[in-house]
Design a protein around this nucleic acid. Structure first.
Length: 598
RNA sequence: CGGGGAGUGGCGCAGUUUGGUAGCGCGCUUGCUUUGGGAGCAAGAUGCCGCAGGUUCGAAUCCUGUCUCCCCGACCA
């Protein structure tokens, strides 16, 4: 491709709405343009990058025997009602774009495809003899994100590869899951990405085992905790660690103490010479569930610990056998709306009585009581006395209503690892580009997708699902590979692998040599770009740096002697050599990088 | 959803306080000079100042409404 014909429009100024480097560079380099909030056009060079990524993904998945397919984006609501996700995805999170057609039928724009694929599988897969099967598609997904941002990183319309596997037994599911994990590792490597697999929460998709693939980068939206020995890595949403040891509460008479204006753990500890680990704090929250219930919830944590909302939502969902749509602190205004009197906020203990809820309008009339192990393991502690400005010193769990024990605390960097206490956790940020799940029978049971097993019995299909954010991956690659001058595309996904820059178009020697080199690369099957614009050399160099083509060959002053300059973009390393040698070296390097693992 | 900010040529911005009919840099067009790291000079083109109402002799500017976009938050009593 000739740059003069490429519709290359580069920007010198940083676009005002772009915050992070990858977003700025993709816009400046003429890769993407914003059409609306979270909606982007992929310009021709970007589309080349995306197609390269797609090709790698297809290659690896096809080699596993997965079958490519294409499913509808417009999906009937009743399919989602049967899986129980319509409420959660529309009214709850509101993440699904939905609409009514002219017959007043409700439809959703697919944010994911479990429902459709499970329906199909139930129809088509009737016998264990057909299993296992893995289907995948690469397609645009729609999600009405609460807050789209960072360009392609969190868009409302984005390209995703999603795969679904179907199995007759758990061993088979695990085998495919492992094979998929291995394929993912190869995909990210071939895309030139530094990615780490971490234990993850399975979130709204549901299911058991799940791992996320994170591209490490400063701008990442997720916090990852890893052990120094490399044996443990998890998203902070899911991570576990050993909590610091608690200080024993010195023996002494149990009593009520006055604690005026001591409404936070910090104030309480400062005023009474306590360590936070000697206290229990109680959060009063309201959980809204997908079956319409509004469940008042008391959560007890050791005073020094921080609530992990994801763990909490999962624990509440498990305890009540319904999906949590939202959990938030109860406000005084909400209490008034329920016709309840004020709670003793700041002095609440785990034994706050259910009578406090008597006569409420729409809430459940009893508390769901959950406690983190750090709190339950304290033999004696200080907590609120359920009476304003008073705390209980030397409380024990004996006289307190039964608590549901759960891991509810947030793990932090610096804490000891569960698998090996001599290791500590450290933190880094990451961009989630892939996620694999063992779904189990969640969707197949809901949608009645059954097969006949070898014993002649009807059984729900076991499922796995596996996603890669293609467009997000492309931007993550830029986030991981750029410098002050622009993008440094990894060779595997670069829109072009080499750019031949003719420094001065009026010099016929340069033009002839440049054209020859360009043609040679094309003949070798390499994606080459020829900068044939009648621009000053400086402009061409700046543009080449910005758009990040991995190899650049400058045909300039020494063209008369057959000498050219070879520049490796990522290393900013420049060498002058004979043009034939330059061609040979660059070609070899590109072809070797594209087939690394052999 | 709550809070903040912004909509002026393709991009980045000034002008709005104090109303008088629109400007700068980059980009674009033409010409000359330049020619290895975003050139110089000269001459041009490009605006329903987000949209709709209102006030006024007169509105980018004041008032009302509305739409859109960006940022922060969604929270530990």
């Amino acid at each position: 491709m000739r740059v003069s014909r490429l519709m290359l429009v580069t920007l010198r100024d940083v676009p005002a709405d772009a915050e992070i480097p990858s977003h700025q560079l993709l816009v400046r380099g003429g890769f993407i343009r914003r059409i609306g909030a979270g909606i982007y056009a992929y310009l021709p060079m970007m589309w080349r990058v995306l197609r390269k990524i797609n090709a790698i993904v297809r290659d690896e998945l096809n080699s596993l025997g997965a079958l490519e397919t294409l499913l509808p984006q417009l999906q009937p609501a009743d399919l989602w009602e049967r899986s129980g996700r319509w409420q959660g995805y529309t009214a709850g999170e509101g993440i699904m774009f939905h609409l009514e057609d002219r017959q007043n039928r409700e439809l959703g724009l697919g944010p994911t495809h479990e429902e459709v694929i499970t329906e199909l599988a139930g129809d088509l897969l009737r016998s264990y003899r057909q299993l296992p099967v893995t289907l995948y598609q690469i397609q645009t997904k729609f999600r009405d994100e609460i807050r789209p941002r960072f360009g392609l990183m969190r868009g409302r319309e984005f390209i995703m590869k999603d795969a679904y596997s179907f199995h007759a037994n758990q061993d088979d599911l695990e085998a495919t899951y492992q094979a998929m994990a291995a394929a993912y590792a190869r995909i990210f490597k071939r895309c030139g990405l530094e990615a780490v697999a971490v234990d993850a929460d399975s979130g709204a998709i549901g299911g058991a085992a799940s791992q996320e693939y994170m591209v490490t980068a400063e701008a990442g939206e997720d916090l990852i905790l890893t052990s120094s020995d490399g044996l443990y890595a998890a998203n902070q949403e899911k991570a576990t660690s050993l909590p610091p040891l608690a200080q024993p509460l010195e023996a002494g008479s149990d009593r009520i103490i006055d604690t005026p204006d001591q409404v936070s753990i910090e104030q309480l500890c400062v005023a009474n010479g306590l360590d936070p680990t000697q206290t229990v704090k109680v959060l009063v929250l309201l959980a809204r569930l997908d079956d319409g219930r509004e469940q008042p919830t008391l959560v007890s944590l050791r005073g020094d610990q921080v609530l992990n909302e994801v763990k909490l939502a999962n624990a509440v969902s498990r305890s009540l056998d319904a999906t949590v749509l939202e959990i938030s602190p109860i406000s005084e205004q909400q209490l008034r709306q329920q016709g309840l009197s004020e709670f003793p906020f700041g002095s609440i203990g785990p034994d706050l009585s259910d009578t406090e809820l008597r006569g409420c309008r729409s809430w459940q009339s009893h508390f769901l009581r959950l406690a983190d192990a750090t709190a339950l393991d304290l033999p004696r502690f200080v907590c609120g006395a359920n009476s304003r400005d008073q705390h209980f010193w030397g409380r024990t769990w004996d006289a307190i209503p039964t608590q549901i024990r759960a891991d509810l605390r947030t793990a932090h960097a610096g804490e000891q690892c569960v698998h090996d206490p001599s290791q500590t956790l450290s933190a880094c940020r990451g961009i989630e580009v892939g996620h694999i799940f063992q779904l189990g029978r969640k969707y197949s049971e809901a949608l009645d997708a059954r097969f006949t097993n070898s014993a002649g019995q009807q059984e729900a299909l076991l499922m796995g699902c596996y996603g890669i954010g293609i467009s997000r991956l492309a931007q993550a690659a830029v986030e991981q590979h750029h410098d002050d001058a622009g993008i440094c595309w990894p060779v595997g996904i670069a829109p072009f692998q080499v750019i031949v820059v003719i420094a001065k178009m009026k010099d016929s020697n340069q033009v002839a040599l440049g054209e020859g080199l360009y043609q040679s690369f094309l003949d070798a099957g390499i994606d080459a770009l020829l900068d044939d614009r009648d621009e000053r050399a400086g402009v061409k160099f700046k543009d080449a740096d910005l758009i990040g083509i991995p190899w650049r060959i400058v045909v300039g002053r020494d063209a008369g002697d057959g000498e050219v300059e070879v520049v490796e973009r990522s290393a900013c390393k420049s060498t002058t050599m004979d043009h034939q040698e330059a061609y040979r070296q660059v070609k070899e390097s590109i072809l070797n990088t594209l087939r690394p693992e052999i």
